[in-house]
Design a binder for these strands. Structure first.
Lengths: 238, 238
DNA sequence: TCTATTCTCGTACGATGTACGAGAATAGAG
DNA sequence: CTCTATTCTCGTACATCGTACGAGAATAGA
């Protein structure tokens, strides 16, 4: 991906990255911080998309030389990892589980969706990244607590969480792409004309019918809720 | 992103791309073809990941000059679009719908999963791309036919298909990342040690318990089937 | 004060997507 | 056949990217 890692998982050693007690008490004092740099990268991504996150632009944003960034993250891939965990800090939940684990899980998913809509680059970034940072783990902890009443074993609980996250990310990615098209009348019209042309060729009767009898337009919000309910209500504790 | 579009949808005009009856019967005869070029790009992506797909490497693969590619696709973004539709050609289904739309839908999803596992770059590519090409539309046509017995209206049927696709893509992306970690014992061990260290810090009791009582390991295949069944069995025709 | 350590960042390199434009090949007009 | 318009080919060039290198500045302990 653009600057993405390949299409699979990238190589960031979680021990190296997250288990560092900040020992250095000698040498020059740091002029910046991971926080500052990561935050700058995040707001850049929020405002202009992941592609706008270049080492040069991030450096300019925090007023650092480009190569100074490499004192805080060994490479760009790691910076992305930091970004993902950084925004996970917004996922703080204070309420204890209600005991109704289905309701709690739905709340978790709704939080994730809102979160990803706020940071549209997240779904894509999440798919190529694998190691949960501390803030992500805090949220995972909450989700696991919500799943306690199910009595599922450890692997199953982790799997449920991963699946829900994947589901939400998939949905939101689609939702965002859809919204991007709708936001531009020109693009929406072009897509409409294209589909209409295809439907008119006679080889796509089902598509033709679907387009001619669209029914009531669906709001992304309602669609999400509907599918989420289906997925979670279908979960059983066996 | 790595050459990705931003994080949202990219700008490829579907009319321009797909509705061209190949008129040019004058001038120099083309030395290559979209097919050849696209196929080369696809096998490059299959073998070495999306990042390996550079204009230079694709050109080398087909024995063309780099700039010659631009006679067949206006830019790299479009080439990716061509790749996505190209592989959709493998999704040919000849069987007519069985009448059991739930079973048919599950078959559709399973086909998609196998397809994405065969082309691990697909899930990520799918999320940033929006316009279905002709081969994708052929498969959509099949899915719509399978959905006919539901009596859903056009928009609802399209939405169901999009949701299933998003779900499968999300699942497979996660599955691939997981597999990449498991495939490298070193990385798997590092991740295990990291999680164990976090669990040992006392702030993550739920995680600690989940890791200490993992239960029987889950195969990706079984997990997929389970979640898919839940999602589809939960669908109703209302 | 000296030395080891740490951070800063200008310069430089290889790789990428692609604009430009000169040349080669082809089809129809004369 | 010649001429011209059209189409494809592709070498060169450029801006932009991630980042290796290393010289200099700042700081802590000896």
């Amino acid at each position: 991906m653009s600057g993405d890692g390949k299409s699979g998982a990238e190589s960031v050693d979680p021990e190296q990255l997250w288990l560092r007690p900040t020992e250095p008490r000698r040498g020059r004092r740091p002029s910046f911080s991971r926080e500052t740099i990561t935050a700058a990268a995040v707001s850049l991504a929020d405002a202009e998309g992941l592609d706008a996150v270049t080492m040069r632009r991030v450096a300019a944003e925090v007023g650092a030389g480009v190569m100074s960034l490499y004192s805080y993250a060994p490479d760009k891939e790691t910076l992305l990892e930091l970004m993902v965990d950084h925004v996970s800090g917004e996922l703080t939940v204070t309420d204890p589980p209600s005991g109704d684990w289905r309701a709690d899980l739905k709340t978790v998913a709704r939080l994730q969706r809102a979160h990803m809509l706020r940071h549209p680059w997240l779904p894509v970034a999440l798919f190529t990244r694998r190691v949960p940072g501390p803030k992500t783990l805090a949220f995972l902890e909450h989700a696991l607590a919500a799943l306690r009443p199910t009595g599922l074993d450890g692997a199953a609980k982790l799997e449920v969480f991963a699946q829900i996250t994947a589901f939400v990310a998939g949905h939101v990615a689609h939702e965002i792409a859809q919204a991007a098209v709708s936001r531009s009348p020109a693009r929406a019209a072009a897509e409409g004309r294209y589909l209409a042309a295809v439907a008119a060729d006679g080889c796509h009767p089902e598509l033709a019918e679907a387009l001619s009898a669209p029914g009531r337009p669906l709001t992304p919000d309602a669609t999400f809720t509907r599918f989420l309910n289906r997925l979670i209500d279908g979960l059983d504790t066996g």
